[in-house]
Simulated scan of single mutants.
Amino acid sequence: MKGVLLVNLGSPDSPNPKDVKKYLGEFLMDERVIDIPYPARAALVKGIILKTRPKASAAAYKKIWWEEGSPLIVISERLQKGIQQHTDIPIALAMRYGSMTIKKGLQELVDKGVDEVLLFPLYPQFAMATTETITVLVDELQKEFFPNLKIESVPAFYNKPDYIEVLSNSIQFHLKDKNPEHILFSYHGVPERHIRKRDVTKSHCKIDGSCCVTPSKAHEFCYRHQCLEVTRLVAEKLQLKEGTYLTSFQSRLGFDPWLQPYTDRTIERMGKQGTKNMAIVTPAFVSDCLETLEEIAMEGEEIFHEMGGEEFTTIPCLNDDKEFVELLSKWINTWVSKN
């Protein structure tokens, strides 16, 4: 019997500092998130970050927390239920970090008689700190606890025409009557070294302005290329004029070089340059979360207004949008009917 495991990032159990600290500890100690040797990672995370950041992060989570719980969890559950209505096989939901563990999700499917799983990381683009950390953990869990389970993983879907169409339709719908001067495509940032580490050619990814637009096998695992490609394909689909849209990267941490340009500085620059009406979309996320609801919709708007901007439109993630639910359901049902 077949089943599907949807996997998203995760969330603290509550916006209290104690729960946030526990969540951040698990997240930041992942060797694919902060990819430095364990002693240095432990010293940084446990010795510095977890002594200072949980209180501030808890305050940010409190700003966006819903009555039903964490927005990311609630939205992911709505997506799961929506897909379940379009397919006959079991659809389970898990998080890479937090109490809704991947092990629990796999066990839920096994308890329902599933012996073949489609692992569905809810990330359009591949990255070490998102897709890869999920697939590596699932491989470990399979070997240790589920040796008889057959598991197949959905690859990055950033350039699938039907995904681009759904994303473009959503952007167009939310920009109805808005007429922004500029649209900013903001993606979650990663350190530049992550891009080079996953360069299968060991020489292509120079992050020099040309490598991402030069055909290469490296693009299959290049987060930067995949982000830029989403922007390009959506701009093409919506017939956006050159000079009216930009790509940027948010949420950097530490002092190492991260992908640029940075979102906060880009918003600041646009305001200073006289942009009065802008919109921002976050295609690295399929579910609204702390990074979109607080960092972009609150902090980003505040920066824009401080720099003289007037209208700041935040386009929601695809969340449980009807077209998105139908698209994922179609992909899943196609997989079901393959064999």
Results as ranks from 00 to 15, higher is better:
L141Y: 09
V20H: 02
Y223W: 08
I83H: 00
L259N: 09
M307R: 13
K21S: 10
Q273Y: 01
V117H: 02
M95H: 09
K81W: 01
L109Y: 11
Y61G: 08
G189N: 07
I34L: 10
F312L: 10
S76C: 07
M278I: 15
K81M: 05
V190M: 00
I48T: 06
H174T: 11
K22I: 15
V74P: 02
E108I: 14
R265N: 11
D256R: 14
T231P: 02
T275I: 15
V114P: 05
A127R: 03
Y61V: 15
K330S: 08
H188R: 06
G300S: 08
A94M: 09
K62N: 08
I91P: 00
E116K: 15
R269Y: 07
V138L: 02
L6C: 05
K276S: 12
V325Q: 02
W331N: 04
L233Q: 03
E295L: 09
E306A: 14
V286L: 07
C211W: 05
S153M: 05
V7N: 01
G113S: 12
E220H: 12
N159L: 03
Q85H: 08
R252D: 00
K55Q: 10
D30S: 14
L119I: 15
Y223E: 02
T201Q: 05
D288F: 14
L238R: 04
V213I: 13
T135N: 00
Y38L: 15
S170G: 07
V136E: 01
E306V: 15
R53T: 06
I134G: 00
K46D: 05
I48G: 02
V336E: 00
S216T: 13
C289Y: 00
A129M: 02
E68D: 13
E26W: 13
M29R: 04
G47A: 07
W66V: 09
V281C: 07
H174V: 12
A156L: 05
I73S: 07
